[in-house]
Simulated assay, not measured.
Amino acid sequence: METKTFKPEIESVNRIQEFVKSALSPEKSNERIRFAVDLIIEELIVNIINYGIKDFNTGFITVCTGIEDETLFIGITDNGPAFNPLEKKDPDIFMALEDRPAGGLGIYLVKQFVKDIRYERKDHKNLIRLWLS
């Protein structure tokens, strides 16, 4: 497992995506997995930056990644206020766009790409763990 800490700023999104993809071996680095990593990281990290971290001077996002039993593991920790994205109700994807409220689609999309996702609040930090295969 490799771990790296990033500043809670939009410029970190691409660095985090590249960091996570660096854990993939060449034979596991197919287009579907790379696309999923990019989407997952963008959705989760942008939400943390825009809605979670309140003090950018003391805020942080720590990412841990590695391969477990041929499954990509991603752990994301931040010190923002408690927020469990898994408690958010899935949007009605069959509702007409003009009738659908804004937001909420990102977490739904993340859940579609992962094998498992878990949330925990520990030591005043949000921990999100994801497994992709």
Rank of each mutant, 00 (worst) to 15 (best):
L86D: 05
L86T: 08
L86P: 04
E87F: 03
E87M: 06
K88I: 04
K88W: 06
K89M: 13
K89R: 12
K89F: 06
D90L: 08
D90W: 00
D90Y: 05
D90M: 04
P91L: 10
P91A: 06
D92P: 01
D92R: 00
I93Y: 04
I93P: 02
F94I: 13
F94G: 12
F94A: 10
F94V: 09
M95T: 10
M95A: 11
A96I: 09
A96P: 00
A96L: 10
L97K: 15
L97Y: 12
L97P: 05
L97H: 09
E98L: 06
D99L: 15
R100W: 08
R100C: 15
P101Q: 08
A102R: 10
A102N: 10
A102C: 07
A102T: 09
A102H: 08
G103V: 02
G103R: 03
G103Y: 00
G104W: 11
G104Q: 13
L105N: 00
L105Y: 08
G106N: 14
G106M: 14
G106Y: 02
I107P: 00
I107Y: 05
I107R: 02
Y108T: 02
Y108G: 02
Y108V: 02
Y108S: 02
V110K: 02
K111M: 09
K111Y: 03
K111C: 07
K111H: 06
K111I: 09
Q112F: 13
Q112P: 13
F113Q: 07
F113N: 05
V114S: 04
V114I: 02
V114T: 00
V114P: 01
V114A: 00
K115V: 06
K115C: 00
K115S: 11
K115N: 13
K115F: 07
K115L: 11
D116E: 15
D116Y: 05
D116M: 10
D116I: 03
I117E: 11
I117F: 03
I117Q: 05
I117L: 06
R118S: 15
R118I: 10
R118W: 03
R118F: 09
Y119G: 02
E120T: 14
E120A: 12
R121Y: 15
R121F: 13
R121P: 02
R121S: 13
K122Y: 08
K122A: 07
D123W: 09
D123K: 14
H124I: 08
H124P: 01
K125D: 04
K125I: 07
K125N: 14
N126L: 01
N126F: 03
N126P: 01
N126G: 06
N126I: 03
L127Q: 11
